[in-house]
């Protein structure tokens, strides 16, 4: 190995690590606010990437049906919850936040998809399709369990992931797709060939991380999310709705998933089931950050990306083994030096 190869590997590692960092941040966010370990996070990435690829080819993506199904599910849950209080106004409000937006988005996508209006419109449509899935998923699978233990929530999360993967196969098919790069250019920096897309990945990740920290530090809703993360009961007492913060957290997770999807879909081929492994690596990074701290999780994600790229060079047959084993010493160290985490605050 010489210096050039090492530079290549570091570059590859940082590009992958940037994606893991985004997913780790989403996982930490959702866990802190709702105590859900969001295994379907990776599915948001694949659905985003596959929807974008379908829109690029001028097809109506399968996520339209998926969005409608989830919205219908959320509507039924809301109607059942409101069964003792059936007033026209209340039913209207339920329809307004479930089927109506989903229907409008689906209609817009069906009309606009065959026109192939270019990458900006495709990205916008993908975002409109996938981001609402987050809150709907929360409404269906997690809101009824909001007071359950972390373990029950984890089981629900695994179930939601399996269901979403199965639906992904039905709606997108078994074959993989990749999208055209947003910027098709290469630069030479010293001995390194750097593709514009990989710079974009790193740049977008850094910008998004900065925006998130501003959001949590400066905006009312960001502060409310932080409050629910620190102490849910206290947050409820001062009037922060658990349900609202749950929905916002899931919507943000789906949005982060979309950003990751747009960034990696041109670099790798996405399949209906590739989200799990990508999400798992984000999860490893989030675990290293103790599922509560953003900065260590981001640092761990970049380190993980670099470990992965070096191990694929030295011992490709054992790559995943090395990546997932690297978490063990860190967990051991954490369990010795950190106080036990109080899962059950209620």
């Amino acid at each position: 190995m010489d210096g050039t190869i090492a530079l290549f590997l570091i570059q590859d590692g940082i590009t992958n690590g940037a994606i893991y960092a985004l997913l780790a941040v989403a996982l930490v966010l959702v866990f802190a606010v709702t105590r859900v370990i969001l295994i379907p996070q990776g599915d948001f990435v694949t659905f985003g990437g596959l929807s974008l690829a379908a829109l690029e080819m001028g097809r109506v993506p399968g996520s339209v049906a998926m969005l409608l199904a989830l919205a219908a599910g959320a509507m039924v849950m809301d109607l059942v919850a409101a069964r003792h209080d059936f007033r026209a106004k209340r039913i209207g409000a339920i329809l307004l936040r479930t089927l109506v937006p989903a229907g409008l988005i689906s209609g817009a996508v069906v009309l606009l998809a065959p026109l192939q209006l270019g990458p900006a419109v495709s990205i916008l449509l993908t975002a409109c399709l996938v981001i609402p899935m987050g809150p709907y998923l929360y409404r269906i699978a997690f809101q009824p369990l909001a007071r359950a233990s972390v373990l029950v929530l984890l089981i629900a999360s695994v179930g939601a992931h399996l269901a979403m993967t199965g639906l992904g196969l039905v709606f997108f098919g078994a074959e993989g797709y990749r999208t055209a790069p947003l910027i098709d250019a290469n630069f030479q920096i010293g001995p390194l060939f750097v593709s514009a897309q990989s710079l974009l990945v790193i740049g977008a990740t850094v910008v998004l991380l900065v925006l998130l920290s501003v959001f949590f530090g400066r905006t009312l809703i960001g502060k409310a999310l932080r409050a629910s993360a620190i102490n849910q009961r206290g947050a409820r007492i001062v009037g922060i709705s658990t349900e609202l913060s749950g929905r916002v957290a899931f919507a943000m997770a789906a949005a982060i998933g979309i950003v990751s999807a747009i960034l990696i879909a041109p670099l790798t081929t996405l399949y209906y089931d590739s989200g799990f492994l990508i999400g798992l690596k984000g999860f490893v990074a989030a675990i290293i950050g103790g599922l509560s701290a953003y900065v260590p999780a981001v640092g761990a994600a970049f380190a993980l990306g670099i470990v992965e790229s070096f191990s694929s060079f030295w011992a490709s047959a054992f790559k995943e083994v090395i990546v997932f084993m690297s978490i063990l010493p860190i967990l051991l160290w954490r369990s010795i030096w950190s106080p036990p985490h109080d899962d059950e605050e209620e």
Partner: peptide, 13 residues
């Protein structure tokens, strides 16, 4: 060298 069906990158190999 080896890689897996789900790998997102084979740059190292």
């Amino acid at each position: 060298e080896r890689f897996a069906r789900t790998d997102t990158s084979v740059t190292g190999q």
